[in-house]
């Protein structure tokens, strides 16, 4: 297990590992591209949401490199401005979901006994209660207007599966020597959880983190259609929904770029995450390095 002396050295070492893994390096480049798009993009490329009926469903041109949507608005501008919310929601959902799962799964596995039983029942409730009616109740009570609250709502339903899996992993790690030694040395649970058990679970956690981020993009469309959050026509998932269902762009040859642009953006972002994850696995598990 890698235990670098300081953060700078650790980052450099991690980068070297990723650089040597072509797939992971490609993933990193894609993620950097999207992060730049989400942060610097809106500053560099202004968003003009003025509608122009005569310009609707135009193909790519110099004026509109990805064409225009159903209201004659530039698709590329929408992709760039939509990326901020999409990435924030994706990463924040994955972060919150993973954080809750780690906290619940690891503590349940390590503490055991009645606490474990209680945590498992809570997990069971979240896994079995259908989230659709709960979302309807949420929609009628709460008004969510910012991406972080949005991510919290999505995360509320995405952690239980991971928490259960992490608990199972911890139960198998619990009797390993290094954990036993920590217990004998009367180390606090916090230390055992985060310093001993967690690093061993990182590859698994990273894969689930990426899965949650991916799921958040598609789930956000459902949440918008339920009315829990305001409609955002620049959200990539919603762009795809509009292209497929609302505007019938799927049947209009000249609207192909409206259909393909958000689709490719989502695919590329998700593929980038998956590629990057393979590098992350290598960082935490030296046996995987070539």
């Amino acid at each position: 297990m890698i235990m670098p002396r300081n953060t700078g050295k650790r980052l450099l070492e991690s980068f070297t590992i990723i650089k040597h893994n072509r797939r992971a390096f490609f993933g990193l480049c894609v993620l950097v591209f999207f992060i730049l798009m989400a942060t610097a993009g809106p500053v560099v490329i202004p968003l003009d949401m003025s509608q122009d009926f005569l310009m609707r469903f135009q193909g790519p041109s110099w004026a509109h490199i990805l064409g225009t949507d159903f209201a004659g608005r530039d698709i590329f501008q929408q992709l760039v401005h939509g990326s901020t919310d999409v990435l924030t929601i994706a990463f924040a959902t994955a972060f919150f979901g993973s954080f809750i799962a780690v906290l619940v799964g690891l503590s349940a596995g390590l503490v055991g006994g009645k606490f474990d039983m209680l945590m498992m029942r809570i997990i069971d409730i979240f896994l079995t209660v259908p989230n659709f009616p709960i979302m309807i109740i949420f929609a009628s009570i709460f008004r969510i207007n910012d991406p972080i609250s949005f991510a919290l709502v999505l995360a509320a339903w995405s952690w239980p599966g991971l928490a259960r899996a992490l608990r199972a992993q911890v139960l198998s790690l619990k009797h390993k020597e290094f954990v036993e030694v920590s217990r004998v040395m009367a180390m606090p649970y916090r230390h055992i959880m985060f310093k001993e058990a967690l690093p061993g679970l990182m590859p698994y956690l990273m894969i689930n983190f990426i899965d949650m981020a991916r799921g958040a993009i598609t789930a956000s469309v459902g949440i918008m259609l339920l009315g829990l959050v305001p409609l955002s026509v620049t959200n990539w998932g919603m762009m795809l929904n509009f292209a497929t269902f609302q505007t019938g762009a799927i049947y209009v040859p000249s609207a192909l770029s409206y259909l393909l642009s958000p689709m490719l953006a989502i695919i590329l972002f998700q593929y980038g995450l998956i590629c990057f994850a393979s590098g992350v696995e290598e960082i935490f598990d030296p046996r995987l390095r070539s």
């Binding site: 989230n131 799921g215 789930a219 459902g222 339920l226 998932g237 795809l240 497929t244």
Partner: peptide, 8 residues
């Protein structure tokens, strides 16, 4: 909603 929209 998640499942409904995954493979939109």
């Amino acid at each position: 909603p998640e499942r409904r929209n995954i493979f939109v």
